[in-house]
Design a protein around this nucleic acid. Structure first.
Length: 718
DNA sequence: CGACCTGCGAGATCG
DNA sequence: TCGCAGGTCG
């Protein structure tokens, strides 16, 4: 392979610099993944390094999957370790968890499980402080991501009035996790670090295996992640990290930009390469991005450039309210799809906070436009899915009392809180885990009524645990579904109940697919994979508009991007304790948003927005001013969607304004009392028409107000 | 035990 | 406005 034809000179240098420490500062759209992929290919092809000796760490599972695929298509190599920090650690721990007092079938707890445990501890020991559980969870996580024990952390936060409470709950929390044979997400990193620190032989095994270590999105690593990597490469020193200090947007979660800014201190001999040529965005888009980020002080300093044309001007629109803003965006999309051959999948609507997606979802669904929301609701966080998974966890890890208490009375078995308390007390008295206690109920001190109900659950639990090996995974989950009788747990006449069953069904389908891809997979492996999965990891290539938070589209690109809700208080999102550092992070988020766009970019804000049950007014975001696009505004309140849209059509798209089917739709056919059909809502009758908006009474769903020009309505008669 | 009522608070979220 | 947690009552 001739690498010099595949890469520009900027990219080629780090790819061929294979020994020692290398830092690549890669601007947005500069071919970062390409460099990483070819660097690994180069090691294999030109340096004779075995893929077995290479490790690549990515930020998301999705990124890992994509990189794996690219490496496979370039080198034909498969099965290399390309994964997230958490997956890497889970794999290491699976082999050596016994050295930490856990066993290999440990459960991985997410935030919800952590919350449950913390709430329980607070209820037992500090009932007056239960409202502090969020802050406590945050502190525990913060302590773990800088590798501090409760005692060490207590010193660090000694000025915090709750420091005693926090560290005491932290200590109890650790005991609980140990008892349940469970790790939380922070533990995966921390305990692997401790394992390496305490067991030189284990560390050396991995040091001798991974001779070349790569880390992507290095700007978003936290302290413990960097410590882990440093440890791994200490013996051979081959560390290759790629990142962009301007795209560090996880500071609030412990990501430490210092890792990238001070890389040279840790590796004095390192070589630093900059990738500043952008291949993604038009000249105008890039200019806007550079202008905005230039307002940040703490930067390593990069100036992106492109050989692309300036392209379409970046547009800024101020709309009177949130609904009008949504209509404006949808109007632009429809017009470009109809007249310029764009597909729905070319568009992304980016928001700073999740709650802004709603108005877009509502309107797209009324207008029959295909869309998909990234992030927001999380499939695996749904109660019904967690309940199902809890049964699987119990079968694999009987020590997992947390999962048992979750499902002991779901579906309803008449086992209430009092009964569960009695069981826990009886088990504690004998030093048994809940599962052991359930198996030996006759030995426990319990009221006969409780014993009887618990016996039924105990029989179920034992049966599930005994049968997990006796059939393939996909058959087993179906077996659990039937045996637990999820079907009768939900009311099919209740739409909510039906949705829940559908979700469980979807979960079962995903297990089938997983089994097809990974034949002979064991339940315990599947569960650990599952715990590390998120919705953002789903890849599918449908033709839909993407609605997402900016954090959710990191690393992605779209031909057309709308950044909406550009208002002070929303973006930048300001809390009372705002510091410059916070604003700089907000600005980096803005920078990430802008640099997602390839061809067209719009910034919008609304003068009035419905939030928390009432209208609120926010001033225009400082980022709009910084982008130099503020000129085209009057007072937003004076404008209506009609004027804005007409003006936009005239100014930006004069050639096709006339042929825009959406704009030219003949509205005179719609009259009060006309019967209309809507593909989603069914039959309805127009009650009242007010300009372009009509109040329509749908037979199935009641009255809705729709924009006649946008909504896919057909006249059925009068 | 479980259905219903009331009050409170509301950020982004990799794994 | 909406979702959750905690309290009350049948």
């Amino acid at each position: 392979m001739d690498y010099s034809t595949l890469l520009n000179t900027e990219q080629l240098r780090p790819v061929t610099d294979t020994q020692g420490a290398v830092l690549v500062l890669a601007g947005a759209g500069s071919g970062k993944t390409r460099v990483l992929t070819y660097r690994i290919a180069y090691l294999i092809e030109k340096c004779g390094v075995s893929p077995y000796n290479i490790l690549a760490i990515t930020f998301t599972n999705k990124a890992a999957g994509e990189m794996k695929e690219r490496i496979r298509s370039v080198t034909g190599e498969d099965g290399m370790w390309v994964m997230t920090f958490h997956s890497f650690c889970a794999r290491v721990l699976r082999n050596d968890a016994d050295k930490l007092g856990h066993n290999r079938n440990f459960s991985i707890y997410g935030e919800a499980e952590s919350d449950r445990i913390i709430t329980r501890i607070l209820k037992e020991e500090h009932p007056e402080d239960t409202d502090k559980k969020k802050s406590i969870r945050w502190h525990i996580s913060a302590a773990k991501s800088i590798a501090m024990t409760p005692e060490q952390y207590a010193l660090r936060i000694k000025d915090n009035p709750d420091s005693a409470l926090i560290t005491q709950v932290y200590a109890r929390y650790e005991e609980e996790l140990a008892k349940n044979n469970a790790f939380d997400f922070d533990d995966l990193l921390l305990k692997t670090f401790l394992l390496f620190a305490m067991h030189k032989d284990v560390l050396e095994k991995y040091q001798d295996r991974f001779l070349y270590v790569h880390v992507d999105e290095f700007q978003d690593t936290n302290k413990i992640q960097f410590l882990l990597v440093k440890m791994l490469v200490r013996k051979y020193g081959n560390i290759f990290v790629v990142g962009d200090d301007d795209q560090s947007i996880y500071g609030w979660r412990g990501a430490d930009v210092g890792n990238i800014l001070n890389f040279k201190k840790d590796y004095p001999d390192c070589r630093i390469y900059k990738l500043e040529r952008n291949y993604r965005s038009s000249g105008n888009i890039l200019k806007t991005a550079n202008k905005v980020i230039a307002n940040n002080a703490g930067r390593m300093g990069k100036q992106l450039w492109t050989e692309k044309d300036a392209g379409v001007e970046v547009a800024y629109r101020s709309l009177c309210d949130d609904k009008t803003e949504a209509d404006f965006v949808l109007e632009q999309i429809l017009s470009l799809v109809k007249n310029r051959g764009y597909k729905y999948s070319d568009f992304a609507i980016l928001v700073r906070i999740n709650s802004l997606t709603r108005v877009f979802e509502d309107r797209m669904s009324s207008y029959g436009m295909p869309y998909k929301v990234i992030g927001g609701f999380k499939f695996y966080e749904r109660k019904e899915i967690k309940d199902f998974i809890a049964y699987l966890r119990m079968a694999v890890n009987p020590a997992d009392s947390e999962s048992i208490t979750r499902i002991i009375n779901f579906p309803k078995r008449g086992i209430g809180d009092v009964c569960v308390e009695a069981l826990i007390a009886a088990c504690n008295a004998r030093g048994l885990s809940l599962f052991e206690g359930l198996k030996r109920l006759d030995e426990l001190e319990l009221a006969p009524a409780y014993r009887k109900k618990l016996a039924a659950f105990a029989a179920l639990a034992t049966d599930l645990a005994e049968n997990k090996e006796s059939m393939p995974l996909d058959e087993y989950v179906k077996y659990v579904f039937d045996k637990v009788d999820f079907y009768s747990a939900y009311d099919m006449d209740d739409p909510e109940g039906r949705t829940k069953l559908e979700n469980i069904d979807q979960f079962l389908t995903s297990v089938h697919e997983f089994c097809a891809d990974n034949p002979d997979v064991k339940l315990e492996e599947y569960l650990q994979t599952l715990s590390l999965l998120t919705d953002a990891d789903e890849t599918d290539e449908g033709n839909y508009i993407t609605i997402a938070t900016i954090h959710g589209v990191k690393g992605l690109e779209f031909r057309c991007v709308f950044i909406v809700g550009l208002e002070e208080g929303i973006f930048p999102s300001l809390r009372s304790d705002t510091t410059t550092a916070d604003v700089e992070e907000e600005r980096r988020i803005m920078y990430v948003a802008i640099t997602r766009a390839q061809e067209r970019l719009w910034l919008t804000n609304a003068g009035r927005r419905f939030r928390f049950g009432k209208y609120e007014s926010n001033s225009v975001s400082r980022f709009v001013k910084e982008s130099g696009l503020i000129a085209a505004t009057r007072r937003p309140e004076e404008r209506t969607v009609h004027h804005t849209v007409q003006k936009a059509l005239r100014r930006d798209m004069p050639k096709f304004a006339a042929s825009n089917a959406a704009a030219a739709k003949d509205l005179s056919v719609f009259k009060p009392n006309a019967v209309v059909m809507h593909p989603k809502f069914g039959r309805g009758v127009i009650n009242e028409i007010n300009g372009e908006n009509a109040r329509i009474a749908f037979d199935a769903l009641g009255v809705k107000v729709l924009n006649l020009r946008l909504a896919p309505l057909t006249i059925q008669g009068e």
